[in-house]
Design a protein around this nucleic acid. Sequence first.
RNA 1: GGUCCCAUCGUCUAACGGUUAGGACACCGGCCUCUCACGUCGGUAAUGCGGGUUCGAUUCCCGCUGGGAUCACCA
Length: 487
Amino acid sequence: MGVSPQVVTRFAPSPTGALHIGNVRSGLFAWLFARHRGGRFILRIDDTDRERSTTESLDEIIDSLRWLGIDWDDGPPNPAFFQSNRFDRYRECLRQLLSSGKAYPCYCSPQELDARRKQAQQERRKPVYERICRDKPFAPDLAPPDRAGGRNYTIRFRMPLDGETVLDDLVRGRSVFQNIELDDLIIVRSDGVPTYNFASVVDDADFGVTHIVRGDDHVTNTPRQIQIFRALGFKEPAFAHMPQVLGADGAPLSKRHGASSVYAYREQGYFPEALLNYLARLGWSHGDQEIFSKQELIDLFGFEACGKSPGIFNAEKILWLNFHYLKQRTPAELAHEIRPFIERRGYTIPGDEAWLVRMVATLRERAKTLVELVEFAHFYLSDDIKVEPKAAAKFFKPEIAEALKSLASEIGALDGDFSEAAIQAAFERVLGRFAMKLGQLAQPVRVALTGGTVSPGIYEVIAVLGAKRTVGRLENALRQIESGSQP
RNA sequence: GGUCCCAUCGUCUAACGGUUAGGACACCGGCCUCUCACGUCGGUAAUGCGGGUUCGAUUCCCGCUGGGAUCACCA
C-alpha cells in the first residue's frame, strides 16, 4: 500500500508577551502528534504585528520550549520561519487573489467601520462588515496597499455567498458553517501588512503543514481559512482544535490566576517533566494512568483520547506531580538543581557539595518545589534564625535549661563520630540523666536549632548542622530562657 | 444577541447499551512517629433537568438549563 505522507505540524506563537501555559499546551499537542507519527515539527514566529513583537518575548519562547524539551525540526534561528521576512511572498499571493477576483480593495475607514458596527449592535443586527466595497470595480493589477505608498484601502477576501464549509475536526468532529455567515475579512491592512488569517494560510501551505493543531479559540477562523486555502489553489490541511484551559473561576487562564507562564513555573521551582505531564493530562488521557514520561506521551498520544470540553487548571495537581518528580531525583541531583535557587535568595552555602547533598536529603520529602525546599532550608543556610515567639513561649521553660546544658556539652564532646547514631546516643544519655522522654527534649531542641516546631528528624538536623552550630544555638536558647525567667 | 461547540465526584478524568459508575488531585479519619512531612490503610463525594428509543441507558435522539469559543486594519 502507499506510504502515508509525512506528518508536518507547527506551533506559531506571536512574540508579543510571555509564553503562556495555555499556549504551550497547544504547541505541546502539535509536537506530540508530529513525534508520535514520526513527522516534522515546525516553529514559526508570527510577528506580523511589528509594534507588539519583541526580541525578549522571542527569547522567552525559545528558552521555554527548550526547557520543556520541545524541539523543532525547522524554525528559528532560520529567518525563513519569521513571518516578518515573508512579506514578498504574501504580496505575491495577494496579487494572485486580486487578479482572479477573489479579493478586492475596501475603502472604508476604520472610523466608518467602527461606527457601522456600533450602530448595528444598537439596532440588534449582526455587527459584521456589510460588503460595501465588494462589488465596486477595480483594476485587476491594482497595487497592493503599501506603507510607503500611503494607500487608503485594505484588501478583503471575497467569501462565497452560498454553500457551506465543512470542518472535520480531529478532536471535535464535524461542524458545518454556512458560507453566508462568513464575512469578507480583511487580509491585508492599509499599511500593507497581511493579517493573521491570510499570512497563516500562506505559510501553512508553503511549509507543507499537514495538520493544524491549535487552541479552539481558532475554530471560528477555520472555515474562513479553509476558503482562503482553496482560493489560493491549495488543499486545506487537517485540523485539530484543543479545548481551552480555564482558571479556577472558569475564566480563561490569565495572570491574575497566579503563575501563568512557563517562566513563572520555572522560577517557582517546578520541573519541566511535571509541567509537561500536567499539561498533557489536561484534556487528554490514557485510561487511569497519571504519570507519563515524555517518551510515553509520544508513544501513546492521539486525538481520539482528547476531550472536547475546556479544562480547569488545577494548581494542586501540578504541585503533586512536581513532588512526584522531586522524589524521583537523588539528593545529589537535587543539590545540583537547587544551587541557583539558593544563590538567588542571597545565601552563601555554609558547606561543600557533600554537605549540600546531606542537607537536601533531610528536606526532600517536605517540599514540593525547589523554592519551597530553599525556604525550608533557611535554618541550615543561615545562622540568622529568629525563634517563633509562640514556640519559645511553649518550649523554652526554665525547667528544661539543665537538660539543654547537658545536651550541649554532650554534643560538644562528640568530636570524632558525628553520626546520627552517636547523636542519638548522646540524647539517650541526657534523657536517662534527667528521666525524660524524647518528646520532652526534642521539641525544645528543635525550636532552639530551627526556630520553629517543624523540621526534619532532630538527629538529622544536628548531623547536618554540625557540633559548633548546634552548640551555639543551644547556648543562644539557654540565654533566652534565663533572660525570660527573670521577673 | 448571531454562529460554532461542550456537559460523569469540588477539579482532571475512565466507561465507547448491561460495572456495587473506576482512578488521580484535594479533603476527612486510622496506623507509623521526637515535630512536620513521607509512607500506608480506610472514608466522604458525580452521571444537570425533562422527554423519547431500547428488555436495559452515563452511553443513542430531541428539548431545556448551564458553560465555553468567536463576531478587530490582534494573533
